[in-house]
């Protein structure tokens, strides 16, 4: 399984370099660190997923002396390591560009939110295909706009207020609880993906 994790870094080594440079550009523009972190972590998680999503890659991996449980597990571990790698890149970039450490809360939230997103999209992608994620996103957007126009007209303002309050009262104890909940969710998602992939016809 370690070999599969190594593969996820070997195949994407050029992307990692490009990602480092692109994050620097984003940080120069002063865009929220939280936004940059979640954007890059989710993108990388999907990128490493899609590289093994082609049927030929699946046939190759499943023909090697590996179980499907190991194939799925390696992907979850790689995605976790990528989230940590992006957080480290953000810290390094902050030190270089902004001459200081980013806030602990921001980095923690990046990790928590990214893991939560991966927990949702990986089982979906194993079950259907990552190409349907965009459609799922479009449907969710439609539901969001429907909610805004029919039920809660000021939903954007309410979310903004809620996030503001959330950030204001953020404590280490709260972050720790959120991290534990998300980790449990990540592990459940991991097992769910194993079950889905074990039944999949290649």
């Amino acid at each position: 399984m370690l070999q599969l994790i190594k593969k996820d870094f070997l195949i994407h080594k050029n992307i990692i370099i490009i990602m480092f440079a692109t994050i620097s550009i984003y940080m120069f523009t002063g865009i929220s660190l939280l936004f940059i972190g979640i954007l890059f972590a989710s993108t990388m998680a999907m990128h490493i997923f899609s590289s093994d999503e082609k049927n030929t890659a699946r046939i190759l991996l499943s023909s090697l002396p590996l179980t499907r449980k190991e194939i799925v597990s390696s992907k979850y571990i790689s995605a976790f390591l990528y989230v940590l790698l992006i957080s480290i890149i953000l810290v390094i970039n902050s030190l270089i560009i902004q001459k200081g450490f980013p806030s602990f809360t921001n980095i923690s939230l990046i990790i928590i939110c990214s893991l939560l997103i991966i927990s949702c999209i990986y089982p979906f992608s194993y079950k259907f295909s990552s190409k349907y994620l965009m459609f799922a996103g479009i449907i969710l957007c439609a539901l969001y706009f429907l909610t805004m126009s029919v039920f809660i007209h000021d939903i954007n303002d309410q979310i903004r207020i809620m996030v503001g309050l959330f950030m204001k009262f953020m404590e280490v104890r709260f972050l720790l609880s959120a991290a534990i909940i998300v980790l449990i969710f990540y592990v459940i998602s991991w097992f769910l993906s194993i079950k889905i992939y074990e039944k999949k016809a290649l």
């Binding site: 030929t56 890659a57 046939i59 190759l60 023909s63 002396p65 590996l66």
Partner: peptide
């Protein structure tokens, strides 16, 4: 015995399966 079996199988497919 999935791993044990595949350890001793060599495979060549019609489709190109490498990255």
């Amino acid at each position: 015995h999935e791993k044990e079996i595949k350890e001793h199988i060599a495979f060549v497919y019609d489709d190109h399966v490498f990255y």
